[in-house]
């Protein structure tokens, strides 16, 4: 019995410890955020990496999400003559859910994994120790700019994704499925609130925090050489994605 408890308890203890370490990383990141020097250039560099360089993949994802959504809902709504609601359904889904979540997932795959890999490599090749020996705090120099960049850039990527998704939905709905364009847009304006967009953007910022925090955490806690880096990268993507979905539920429950 005791052995069973030990067996069951060990992963639980590990999980709690892991959560604790992630929170500690977050706390020290926040505390380093307010201490000079403020590395604006490093933050900009990360913003470019997280934001600008992800825009194409996010736009493609957003556009096709909107398009497939229009296609799917059209067939559903046509059964009771509700084709006019396709536009607002696409817009509402994009702004509230699919825009933030899909953007976050794409950025996790592209950026979160890169963060884990980059910091992991730096850890195993002692570059992080080197930073320390040069009196540069690695959290301030490496983690904080990444987290700030992700928190700032995810909402921007999301609004682009929202827009492109709605445009994609419009293209499919109006040009291919011949829904009246006036009604398509009027229904969007009628049903979608500004709050839907803003809440989606707040979500996106949270997701940005999650994916960058997990990516950095997995990176700087990497052990075991190149193999360890690979492991850290995979774990960061899986853990970030899962946490994004879980937190999405709770954020939705709180906001809408």
């Amino acid at each position: 019995m005791i052995r069973f408890l030990e067996f069951a308890g060990r992963p639980l203890v590990f999980f709690v410890e892991e959560c604790g370490r992630i929170m500690l990383l977050l706390l020290s990141t926040i505390s380093w955020m307010f201490r000079p020097p403020f590395r604006i250039r490093v933050i900009f560099k990360q913003m470019e990496f997280v934001g600008v360089n992800s825009v194409i993949v996010v736009m493609i994802t957003g556009a096709f999400t909107g398009m497939v959504l229009a296609l799917q809902t059209y067939h559903g709504f046509r059964m009771f003559g509700g084709e006019s609601l396709v536009g607002s359904t696409v817009a509402l889904s994009m702004t509230r859910e699919l825009g933030p979540v899909f953007t976050a997932l794409m950025v996790t795959g592209r950026v979160g994994s890169a963060m884990a890999a980059e910091l992991g490599t730096m850890k195993v090749t002692e570059q992080i120790d080197a930073l320390n020996t040069m009196s540069v705090n690695p959290i301030q120099y490496l983690v904080m700019p990444r987290i700030i960049a992700a928190i700032l850039m995810l909402p921007v990527l999301t609004i682009i994704s929202d827009f492109v998704g709605i445009v994609g939905g419009y293209f499919v709905g109006v040009n291919l499925l011949k829904i009246n364009s006036g009604i398509f847009i009027a229904k969007i304006i009628d049903i979608v609130d500004l709050e839907d967009i803003f809440n989606g953007l707040i979500k996106a910022a949270f997701f940005g925090l999650i994916l960058s925090l997990i990516g950095c955490y997995k990176g700087i806690s990497t052990i075991g050489g190149a193999e360890g880096v690979g492991r850290a990268t995979t774990q960061s993507v899986v853990l970030s994605s899962v946490l994004i979905f879980i937190s999405d539920y709770f954020l939705t429950a709180v906001m809408f």
Partner: peptide, 13 residues
């Protein structure tokens, strides 16, 4: 201090 690490630990980027 200055420190030379085993694999030099130069910043890759």
């Amino acid at each position: 201090f200055g420190m030379l690490f085993q694999d030099a630990a130069l910043f890759d980027s």
